[in-house]
């Protein structure tokens, strides 16, 4: 029953996401490839995970696991079914109680040749990119072979601003940037700032939207 139900639910959810927010992929510096990758993105709304998954080509989507917060996605049976069953999500405890287990689980996915989607800000932003939490640094050190690909999610904070129960459909673009090159002997703070900088510079990318409303203008 669930075996039959999950693909239907998955296609329904991805289709609905595209109908609402477009979820267009714009590869600006990297190309879709089946290599272990850590896609790290800015966190704008509850739709982020679905939007990035919908933007990925289907053959990569099957081998990509979004890392999702257990306290939200594990909150009800339905959310858990959507997260784990439909989106291959890796549910993690972000309270800090089980850091070692979380790291082991994430490293295992990358070592098996598959990819992860991470939101290193930890919390939802308002269109600007907040400082990163350190998980990305530790994971990158533990699995140095994984490519670190920044993904800037454009416009999605306008679709569902924090604290707004209603949703306004807008076209959102996922900008996939160039993988972060490894730097020898870089410390944690410098690495996190460089990774964040890669996302911020993607947000200023010139492709077509230099006049698009900026985060600041639309935030509050």
């Amino acid at each position: 029953m669930t075996r039959l139900f999950q693909p239907v639910l998955r296609h329904g959810l991805l289709g609905l996401t595209r109908l609402l927010v477009g979820a267009r992929a714009s590869w600006e510096g990297s190309a879709p490839a089946d290599v272990p990758r850590i896609y790290f993105a800015n966190h704008t709304s509850h739709l982020d995970t679905l939007a990035v998954m919908a933007a990925l080509p289907s053959e990569l989507r099957a081998r990509t696991h979004p890392v999702a917060a257990l306290d939200y996605w594990g909150g009800s049976a339905l959310r858990r079914a959507v997260a784990a069953g439909c989106l291959n999500a890796l549910l993690v405890d972000r309270t800090g109680k089980a850091t070692a287990e979380v790291m082991d689980a994430m490293a295992a996915v990358l070592e098996s040749g598959q990819s992860l989607i991470l939101f290193p800000e930890g919390t939802r932003g308002d269109g600007t990119v907040a400082p990163f939490k350190s998980g990305l640094y530790h994971l990158a050190r533990r699995v140095p072979s994984a490519e670190l690909v920044p993904v800037f999610i454009e416009n999605l904070h306008r679709v569902m601003p924090k604290g707004m129960p209603l949703l306004v459909p807008l076209i959102c673009t996922m900008r996939f940037g160039a993988p972060l090159p490894p730097v020898e002997g870089e410390d944690k703070a410098a690495f996190l700032e460089r990774a964040r900088g890669a996302l911020v510079s993607l947000s200023r990318s010139k492709s077509h939207s230099d006049s698009q409303p900026t985060g600041q203008r639309t935030a509050q």
């Binding site: 306008r158 601003p161 209603l166 076209i171 639309t218």
Partner: peptide, 18 residues
């Protein structure tokens, strides 16, 4: 959707746009 995407909106417009 195309028109509103390119138009700056603010928080107060959300209900009307919905």
């Amino acid at each position: 959707r195309e028109f509103i995407t390119l138009t700056p909106t603010r928080r107060g417009d959300h209900a009307g746009l919905f």
